[in-house]
């Protein structure tokens, strides 16, 4: 009996993560959280920190809201959700300011804007309000990873093509520049992110057809 339950939750957890990463990916499938995906993907460093911050917020907001889901009065539930999310976002922002100051400066307003990120609110409203804490937490982690995977993927191509670097280290060798290779300035601008995200969405939709 116990093994059966464990097996069930294991496979369920696996399915949830797989779905959030692939079949129902928040960015490339649901097209949520695009604003921050455009803004913080010029470099891998900022994208990774942003992905971690969002994962932290969505996982813990799901957990907390799910624990309170039977006590929250229905008529003020959105306010309660926003209060929980906002508190977590400000804590994340304060921690970044204290320990990762330079990255927090580059992320500027976008950490604060996690409050308005549709992914967080969407998961709280549709999943955490109806499911037990453990599964809700896992759902938050899974969706944060789904968001983060696209963010880091987009940032990889933008940083590589836009400035010839990965994680701040030069990877395009000097002789390539000497031979006339130039970095693609478009990738540093928001339209570059639109194009890369568009390609990701296209790729995923094409692969999912089968």
């Amino acid at each position: 009996m116990t093994t059966a339950t464990v097996k069930l939750t294991k496979s369920q957890g696996y399915r949830m993560v797989a779905d959030a990463l692939w079949k129902t990916n928040p960015i490339s499938k649901q097209v949520l959280g695009i604003c921050s995906a455009l803004a913080v993907t010029v470099q891998m460093n900022t994208a990774i920190v942003m992905a971690l911050a969002l994962t932290f917020v969505v996982a813990f907001s799901n957990l907390i809201i799910s624990m309170m889901r039977n006590a929250i009065p229905r008529n003020i539930r959105i306010i309660v959700e926003v209060a929980v999310i906002a508190t977590l976002v400000i804590i994340a922002d304060e921690v970044l300011k204290a320990f990762l100051f330079n990255i927090s400066k580059q992320l500027s307003v976008f950490v604060g804007l996690i409050i308005t990120n549709c992914i967080v609110m969407g998961r709280a409203e549709t999943y955490a309000m109806a499911n037990p804490p453990g599964r809700s937490f896992l759902d938050g982690v899974a969706n944060g990873m789904g968001y983060g995977s696209i963010l880091v993927g987009v940032a990889f191509f933008r940083e590589l093509l836009g400035s010839g670097k990965i994680m701040g280290f030069q990877v395009v060798p000097q002789f390539a520049y000497d031979l006339g290779y130039t970095d693609m300035g478009l990738m540093l601008l928001a339209p570059g992110a639109f194009i890369v995200i568009g390609l990701f969405v296209w790729l995923e939709h094409t692969l999912l057809k089968d």
Binding site: I76, V80, A83, T87, I90, A98
Partner: peptide, 27 residues
């Protein structure tokens, strides 16, 4: 509803105050 909102408000502000004053020196 009012009571719940008040409790949430107090708890959130306590957490924020703790985070803000605890990390102030580093910031």
């Amino acid at each position: 509803s009012l009571l719940f909102a008040a409790v949430i408000g107090v708890v959130c502000s306590l957490l924020l105050t703790a985070a803000s004053s605890g990390l102030k020196a580093f910031q």
